[in-house]
Design a protein around this nucleic acid. Structure first.
Lengths: 177, 177
DNA sequence: GATAATTGTTATGGACCATACCAAATATCG
DNA sequence: CGATATTTGGTATGGTCCATAACAATTATC
């Protein structure tokens, strides 16, 4: 997933046979044949979007290494904190997670004592989700890490105004595309 | 992966027991308890980025349904066209695809007669990649579809200037984050 | 009260990604 | 030159994420 800093393994030998293999090549201008042309690719929305997303997730994981939280887990904790008393279906579907896939995720968070399933008394089918005390504490630390080490990089890179414009445009795409 | 248009399966019954279950509830103001609060989630770069990326890929696949090209396949064809005479390792690594995973991808494109592997005479280990005539034709049609049905939507949604600014910012993130 | 719908869950398969390993071909260097 | 290391395409394999079908328990519907 590196790539952008490519050119370190493309080597220097191929794609030339005539009018060049007989010259007195020795020192300068040796390692050409490098650096592929991205061409129209760098203008493709999907391409640059995916690339940016991978980089951002990668950085997120590094920032959260001490708390061992993935972006998806972080979003679950955030949503449960903001919406206490909701069941699994509501939280999962809001995040675009299918209920079957949400089970293992919750098993993980619950085993780490970050959140808990509580049988609802209204509807004994559903499990109400809440954050444990530890979950609240971990989420608080996670927020600080994200704000200072992760989101702050966007400001350093784009500036406050551009950062907000970017988020807004992405949200528009996510909602109206 | 839908979500944004949620609220159609969250139902209308939970999270209320006192001071409401005895009223004369009948018509108006019935289905509350809807619409979870996204909260800080909508400001999270990674969250909105991933959401936007999924939407864009989804739309890309719809636009390319007639040609049966995924975003990854399209990027391979674009790169091979722009850089003829390169081998698998070079094309794959430029796209962030690991060589082992690139094999099946090429098998697919080659079986559809869109591109071909040619044993290099310089280095008989490597396979030079080229587009077939059919591959060039399909790519040409794909470009038109992407331009008119896919990228055009960005202009309709954000406007030309914002579209360019967005691509530029995403590229910056992909390269410097 | 019979039937339909919902909730959490399991099982399962596909797509994508990453690592280890291999044979053939080439590069490197004593 | 020849022994060793490196590179290339490939296979095998496992992990993660995503999607569908099916099921028991519970609740809604009529």
């Amino acid at each position: 997933m590196t790539v952008s800093k490519t050119a370190e393994k493309t080597a220097e030998k191929s794609a030339e046979k005539p009018a060049d293999a007989a010259k007195g090549r020795k020192d300068a201008s040796e390692p050409q044949a490098e650096a592929l042309q991205l061409g129209e690719l760098s203008e493709q929305l999907g391409y640059v979007l995916k690339r940016a997303q991978l980089k951002v997730f990668e950085n997120f994981l590094r920032c959260m290494a001490s708390l061992q939280l993935t972006p998806a887990q972080f979003s679950v904790l955030l949503l449960v904190e903001k919406n206490p008393g909701r069941n699994q279906t509501e939280i999962a579907s809001t995040l675009g997670i299918l209920r079957p896939n949400f089970v293992a995720m919750l098993d993980n968070l619950e085993s780490r004592d970050l959140c808990a399933r509580i049988r609802s008394t209204n509807d004994r089918r559903s499990h109400i989700l809440v954050l444990t005390d530890k979950g609240k504490a971990v989420l608080a630390r996670a927020k600080k890490l994200v704000a200072t080490k992760h989101e702050a990089r966007l400001n350093d890179l784009l500036g406050q105004a551009n950062r907000e414009a970017l988020i807004e445009m992405l949200a528009k795409i996510a909602n109206e595309f």
